[in-house]
Design a protein around this nucleic acid. Structure first.
Length: 908
RNA sequence: GGGCGAGUAGCUCAGUUGGUUAGAGCGCUUCCCUUACAAGGAAGAAGUCGUAGGUUCGAGUCCUAUCUCGCCCACCA
């Protein structure tokens, strides 16, 4: 064997950067069929993914690693199949998140607020922040091996996408699907902006339930009422009771007095009130509670806003004006206690609405905002999934999607932020508004409508980030322009992302895609699970269990991280990432490396040409049958989006079959020299090559590196390495390039079965050696007896002696046992009996026990199988399944009878 | 309140048209630095697949009920 110059340990650090640069340099990430290039063929159907654009707020986390691994796998798989493939990269401006970060940053470093800085300056700072973090994140995405076409990279606030956003807004507006008006919305006092329902998260927190008296005017009577937010009492405009409530119905129509303020409000009857809960009477604050808002609307109650944008009490709150909401709560309650209006407080678990971004408690407030009328968009989007035109993987998310779509509410799209797409609406001094693509157009329209030139001011608000995200699959391809890219690459193929943004993003893309392009933006939605820590907890800075993917890659390599994420998960199911698993997969990469190293060395040492044609050995045929089986099942699994299972099977084949068995036998075959060595080297190369191809979508770096080296090694050799530049997927390759040299029907099964017999025999002998404490290097004498497998054993003598460490000089193989040798240890492995003349090691008592144990096991199996075969199983199960069981039964029967004989022979 | 998912070896998890004796990694026991790999090799121990029924020749896999945990949606003051 030639000395290999490659290091014993795979150096992923040295490989990754170089290989990625090489890919980019070669243009591997560009679509093979590109409308921008000569020779474009529009008939070829492409495979397209739009990246879920990472926010420009921060750095890489495992969620990014997950989607890059998944999408890169899909992209590479399709690219290898020869499909023109495009993966569009890009980043998201992430309105609230980014603005918050920048605000914090300037406050910390320059001690100025955004208001002090002013809108223009603030935006300047934000753009430079964006430039910095965009650079970081896109470098990190590359580090993960993402094979996206960087020449087509987009940003949600770039010129083209901003144009798309304006176009979308104007179209919806003109269609009457966008309206503006005062509504009860979720208000984030710290960010001082509206947020959508989806951006509110509820947390279980212990609070107090305050019981107090609602006095009836001109009476000493009162209605007891409970609330969790006493400060909202200041905005009450009614007290509601159930119309059939015997306790309170007499008060309906009466006038109640708001505590402390003594404002007069009506007592009303409404079925919404739950008689069982609290006191059975409800205070109504239409200005600060969604349910009260609806009740208020039913009863035409006035709406009082008691909180301002910073959640401080407004003038309507009388003596409490100017107080913070929580301060007002305390003060008001104390005053009520003093006035004898309080009854009691109880500890109470409630769900507190908090802002997804800022984390502070959001307040329902009346505010003038922009909304999208969503029903007309949601209906076709729901139908698309229901009819199966869009397939969601895993399927059960279809129900989740439907559930949400059926109950969808109008979407509040305006945000009182600076960082984002400004709403394309201008106001005239008289208040009339003009929605247009730009100011010029708005001015013209204003002139037409108002009959004169007027000064216009643009709406100060920006759009919800998700509004632009909803356009992503087509805006990134040039929409609203009918670009070549849009025509060819749209609709995209698969949308891959985490299930946590199914509503935020996926649903909106489907709605907007249908609305604006008339087509579904993709045909498949693949939802991956969330990456959690080892114990299944969400990663969070406060728990301190955040795993940094960069550190993981530094320590174990990108391939190991990717393989762990891909193989450790199943669609839609959260994956608990443990570093131990990553380490195990780093070991796998190293295993690949060393197997590759061995094969390359073997190739170098083997003859360069063959002199004639040789038959395949059992091991050759077996490994080839296995690799074919593996290719077929990988194909099937890839087509069904079961990538994890495919990865597992490839891993097992490579390690347990190829490395542990075939390479070991190949060593013997190579040692024979001549054509046998030529052929073995050839097959080693082929199987390694195919394995690398199957693994490439999972672990692109190590496979690319090995493949390159393998090609180099094969240059002066007539072995069959594919000389094409790009690695293609094995499915077609096996058939086209490497036709099978074995012509007989059923050769795969035949060889798989025979090899299994050989493996079992070797294992049984090794087991016996271990039990008897025979030294690993010590060759032992064995007599093999088998009627059925005589030829097989004879033929595989060499492999057998080497693998089981038998003494070749004293090995005998016979069809029948003429005379049982003295002082032997017998062993039965399926159809083969083995006798070891190891008199020094025989202990008749021990032997008897062992044989009896084996016989007992065999008898149990015979019993089980006989029973099974006596049932309807024999008639109803498929013939192949029945045959299998019958064969097994025969095996156990022959084993049992020879065990019995041996027991007899051993005597007492 | 509605919906969804999970419960398989000590731990973390695979297991998709129902079909051998249910698998992997880590951990554990014994042996081995054998010329691809000690990030390795060989042998081994370890599970009544949450529980109870049902369908079927056959159920971890399908159906029903039930328990436990988790998530999402709706938000009863």
């Amino acid at each position: 064997m030639a000395e290999s110059t490659l290091p014993k340990t795979y150096d992923f650090k040295a490989t990754e950067e170089r290989v990625y640069a090489w890919w980019e340099e070669q243009g591997f990430f560009r679509p093979s069929n590109d409308p921008r290039k000569p020779g474009f063929d529009e008939a070829k159907k492409p495979f397209v993914i739009s990246i879920p654009p990472p926010n420009v707020t921060g750095e890489l986390h495992l969620g990014h690693a997950m989607f890059v691994a998944m999408e890169d796998l899909m992209i590479r798989y399709n690219r290898m199949k020869g499909v023109p493939t495009l993966w569009v990269p890009g980043t998201d401006h992430a309105g609230i998140a980014t603005q918050l970060k920048v605000e914090e940053d300037i406050l910390r470093t320059e001690e100025v607020t955004r208001d002090e800085l002013g809108r223009d300056d603030f935006l300047k700072r934000t753009w430079s922040w964006k430039d910095k973090y965009h650079g970081i994140i896109s470098k990190q995405i590359r580090r993960l091996g993402a094979s996206c076409d960087w020449s087509r990279e987009r940003f949600t606030l770039d010129e083209g996408l901003s144009k798309a956003v304006r176009e979308a807004f104007v179209r919806l507006y003109r269609k009457g699907l966008i309206y503006r008006g005062p509504r009860l919305i979720n208000w984030s006092p710290r960010l001082r902006t509206a947020v959508s329902d989806l951006e509110v998260e509820y947390s279980e927190e212990e609070g107090q339930l305050y019981f107090f008296k609602y006095r009836i005017k001109d009476s000493s009577e009162f209605i007891p009422v409970a609330t969790t937010r006493p400060e909202t009492i200041l905005g009450d405009t009614a007290v509601a009771v159930h119309p059939k409530d015997e306790r309170y119905k007499k008060y309906i129509g009466a006038t109640a007095l708001v505590p402390i303020l003594d404002r007069e409000i009506p007592v009303i009857g409404d079925e919404y009130v739950d008689r069982e809960f609290g006191t059975g009477a409800l205070k109504i604050t239409p200005g600060h509670d969604p349910n009260d808002y609806q009740i208020g609307a039913r009863h035409k109650l006035p709406i009082i806003s008691v909180l301002d944008q910073a959640a401080q009490i407004r003038a309507e709150g009388g003596p409490y004006a100017g107080m913070d909401r929580f301060e007002a709560r305390k003060t008001l309650w104390a005053d009520m206690q003093a006035a004898g209006l309080s009854i009691k407080t109880e500890r109470y678990m409630q769900r507190v609405p908090r802002s997804q971004r800022g984390g502070e408690i959001v307040e329902p407030m009346i505010s003038t905002q922009w909304f999208v009328t969503i029903k007309p968009l949601a209906e076709p989007a729901l139908a698309a999934v229901d009819s199966g035109r869009i397939k969601i993987v895993p399927e059960h998310f279809t129900k989740v999607y439907r559930n949400w779509m059926e109950n969808i509410q109008d979407w509040c799209i305006s945000r009182q932020l600076w960082w984002g797409h400004r709403i394309p609406v201008w106001y005239a001094p008289d208040g009339s508004m003009f929605c247009a693509y730009d100011e010029e157009e708005a001015r013209a329209e204003a002139k037409r409508t108002l009959g004169k030139e007027v000064e216009l001011t643009q709406d100060p608000d920006v759009l919800d980030t998700w509004f632009s995200s909803g356009l992503w699959p087509f805006s990134t391809l040039g929409w609203p322009e009918q670009t070549e890219d849009l025509k060819y690459f749209y609709p995209t193929s698969v949308l891959e992302t985490g299930y946590d943004i199914l509503f935020f993003w996926v649903a909106r893309m489907i709605m907007m895609g249908l609305e604006f392009t008339g087509e579904l933006p993709f045909h498949t939605v693949y939802l991956h699970g969330l990456v959690r820590d080892e114990q299944g907890r969400k990663m969070s800075k406060t728990i301190g269990n955040v795993i940094d993917p960069l550190e993981v890659m530094d320590k174990y390599g990108t391939d190991a991280l990717r393989f762990t994420l891909l193989v450790g998960s199943t669609p839609g199911q959260d994956v608990n990432l443990s570093l131990e698993k990553v380490a195990a997969n780093r070991n796998f990469a190293n295993k690949l490396w060393n197997a590759g190293r061995y094969v390359i060395g073997a190739l170098a040492a083997a003859p360069k040409e063959k002199t004639g044609d040789l038959n395949w050995t059992l091991a050759d045929a077996w490994v080839w049958a296995r690799v074919k089986q593996l290719t077929a099942s990988s194909n099937r699994l890839f087509e069904n989006s079961q990538y994890g299972e495919a990865g597992r099977q490839i891993y097992e084949f490579f390690w347990n079959d190829f490395a542990d068995w075939y390479i070991e036998i190949a060593k013997l075959q190579l040692a024979e020299g001549g054509d046998r060595a030529f052929k073995t080297a050839d097959l080693l190369v082929r199987v390694l090559d195919l394995s690398l191809r199957l693994l490439h979508p999972f672990t692109p770096f190590v496979t690319e590196e090995l493949w390159t080296r393998l090609k180099e090694a094969a240059l002066d050799h007539s072995a069959n390495i594919n000389p094409e530049k790009n690695a293609s997927w094995p499915e077609a390759l096996i058939i086209a390039r490497w036709p099978e040299p074995i012509a007989q029907e059923g050769w795969e099964d035949f060889n798989l079965r025979n090899f299994a017999i050989l493996q079992n025999l070797v294992r049984a002998i090794r087991n016996l050696r271990a039990e008897k404490g025979i030294k690993p290097g010590q060759r032992i004498i064995a007599h093999l007896v088998s009627q059925e497998c005589y030829n097989l054993l004879e033929q595989e003598k060499a492999a057998l002696t080497a693998l089981a460490q038998l003494d070749p000089a004293q090995l005998t193989i016979s069809k029948t046992l003429k005379e049982r040798p003295e002082n032997t240890i017998p062993l039965v492995s399926g159809p083969v009996e083995v006798y070891f003349p190891l008199s020094g090691l025989t202990d008749p008592v021990e032997e008897r026990a062992r044989l009896e144990r084996e016989l007992k096991e065999a008898s149990a199996q015979i019993q089980r199988l006989e029973t099974l075969l006596a049932t309807d199983f024999a008639n109803k199960a498929p013939a192949a399944v029945v045959l299998k069981e019958q064969t097994r039964l025969q095996g156990f029967q022959s084993a049992a009878s020879s065990l019995e004989e041996q027991l007899k022979a051993i005597g007492d």
